[in-house]
Design a protein around this nucleic acid. Structure first.
Lengths: 343, 343
DNA sequence: GTGAAAGCGCTAACAA
DNA sequence: TTGTTAGCGCTTTCAC
């Protein structure tokens, strides 16, 4: 085994060996058209033999770009987000970009920090899904001012300089609520997330609209805002169990919470869907496993990641229209046992 | 709003404004002891006011380090891996490191590519969980030769230069199999993953040993090697249904596959655990939702990520003992309905 | 305590 | 087609 703990091989070393200039080596290595074929071959061979590795800092310093993309997400540890990231990684990797990932943990403070750090790292572009707490985009100004492109996905915020990749949460909320109404539900409530965020506000709006369109009552108890985790499902279930007038339908804004809610309700002897219909959102694998299987909205995580990545790349290449504002992916209503009363 | 679309502010700009030298600015910014307090304050204020952002490339180029860590994992889109990454990100973020993540998609070729790319990016260290196909560590030689530390987690490979973070898969496999035997299973089979990988080979070894210790028969049909995804569960279930002599216990090397297998077996009228006991591995959330709840091994993903990250950081700081070889985290057997015959 | 100057490795404008 | 040269922004040694 060769120990090369010493100094890195540079283009100057190669140039010296080949008795040519460093610039020719640089050009040869990048397959520049102004270098003769034989010379290129010589350079490539020498580089390989000498164990040359390009120094990206020097290169980045010169070129003022990094081939690095920053990603800021609320949390990494959900099924949805991991499929999104997986999709992004695949695309960026194909295009020679590196991905730097950070989590806001649903906090605006951490989100600001992450974005500032990524900015300092001189990322070429940014993909962002906003935290629960984020109310405005001031913390993105440093990117906007520098003209660094930002693409939002899923949890977005309208901004003239940004493009977004989303699904139609309003429509999805409308569809799933309508479905529950068709199944005979008259008193449906919605377990939602932070109403600052488009995804949760839109799902709720869709729910409300469906209720109103069907002349069903909604009041201040129709919406429970939670943080949509496992515990929230248990707590909401217990809150509902303690109500005098229990709902006959519950539309939950994600599957995790819907599932833990179903488990808790079942423990208390509630029959799903006979006593209460339940629907979730996301089509996590868990929705196909819970008994009864959970009615939900299929939510294309991997595609969303791929589309967001592709969009950012085309912006970086200058191929993207200024007019494009948002890309809406198709969702679908997945009807399963948890809401099916009419067989 | 100030438009600073132009040139970045450098320490020279600050120096000019303050009528001092760039070196003093550099020192002041880093809180170097040889700079007077008043001067430091002046520099800091000017830097903030002028919107100075350190150029990391220039800095890295000078210092020959990046504050960046590379992570290579087989896939990102599993619950386990996303919790691992989440744990790592948290630790590295606290210590001012960036994370660059890439997926090998279980392929040795992609793994080699990813590692080479990360090497070129001059990562300070690497965290790796090996692909299904990886048989040796030749593709890591370029890192070893340069003295760049590598820490393996979960899917490891023994190497004198590397440290590992794992659980005792052998023991876990032994425990879960023993439990099933206690519950009266006599004819248990194991659905495993690539036997090249420690995690799967060790779980199988544990299984075999438990069988042998209890004088139960094992043969070439006792192990089915699959890729442990959702489909594999369905296929294995059908394979088992077609057997003349069906097992009375199935130990599956992960929860995803165990769960899809349970669903498929149930469809065919098999009662779990009365006809067949099933156990999984990982303690994914899904294991608590499937009916019957899945017996499994709790597998500390987040902690594994945190410990691996902490280990790498201490190596980078030179605080880590050469003698440390591997860190074994505690697992636990979670007994649930899917294997419980004796109530 | 502060400044001058060199150089990290690479690229690109310009010259030849 | 190849070479020369300047400089990206920062750190650090040495001198004062």
């Amino acid at each position: 085994m060769i120990m090369t703990t010493n100094r890195d091989v540079t283009i100057y070393d190669i140039a010296k060996v080949l008795k040519i200039s460093a610039s020719t080596v640089s050009r040869g290595l990048k397959n520049h058209p102004h270098v003769s074929k034989e010379m290129k071959k010589k350079i490539l061979i020498a580089a390989r033999k000498m164990g040359y590795q390009q120094n990206k800092f020097a290169s980045n310093l010169r070129q003022k770009r990094t081939n690095t993309i920053g990603v800021v997400v609320p949390r990494l540890d959900s099924y949805f987000m991991s499929t999104v990231i997986s999709g992004m990684e695949k695309i960026f990797n194909n295009f020679g970009y590196n991905l730097i990932i950070s989590q806001s943990q649903e906090s605006i403070k951490k989100e600001s920090n992450s974005i500032a750090t990524l900015f300092n790292t001189r990322v070429d572009g940014l993909l962002v899904s906003l935290s629960y707490e984020t109310r405005n985009l001031e913390h993105l100004n440093l990117l906007f001012n520098k003209g660094i492109p930002v693409v939002f996905f899923d949890r977005i915020c309208d901004h003239p300089k940004c493009k977004s990749v989303i699904i139609d949460n309003y429509k999805a909320g409308y569809e799933i609520t309508s479905h529950m109404i068709e199944q005979g539900c008259k008193h449906i409530i919605h377990i939602g997330g932070s109403q600052i965020r488009n995804v949760y506000a839109d799902r709720y709006r869709g729910f409300r609209r469906a209720m109103v369109d069907n002349c069903l009552e909604i009041n201040d108890k129709s919406l429970m805002v939670t943080n949509l985790n496992h515990e929230a499902g248990i707590e909401s279930a217990n809150a509902i169990l303690n109500q005098k007038e229990r709902p006959d339908g519950i539309f939950v804004a994600n599957d995790t919470t819907a599932v833990s809610m179903i488990c808790e309700l079942k423990k208390a002897g509630i029959r799903i869907p006979e006593d209460i219909c339940v629907a979730g959102f996301n089509d996590d694998p868990i929705s196909r496993v819970v008994d009864p299987n959970l009615t939900t909205i299929h939510y294309p995580g991997r595609e969303m990641g791929e589309v967001a990545a592709t969009t950012l790349i085309s912006i970086l290449k200058g191929e993207q229209s200024e007019l494009l504002n948002s890309i809406v992916l198709r969702h679908s209503l997945i009807i399963r046992q948890s809401s099916l009363r009419i067989k």
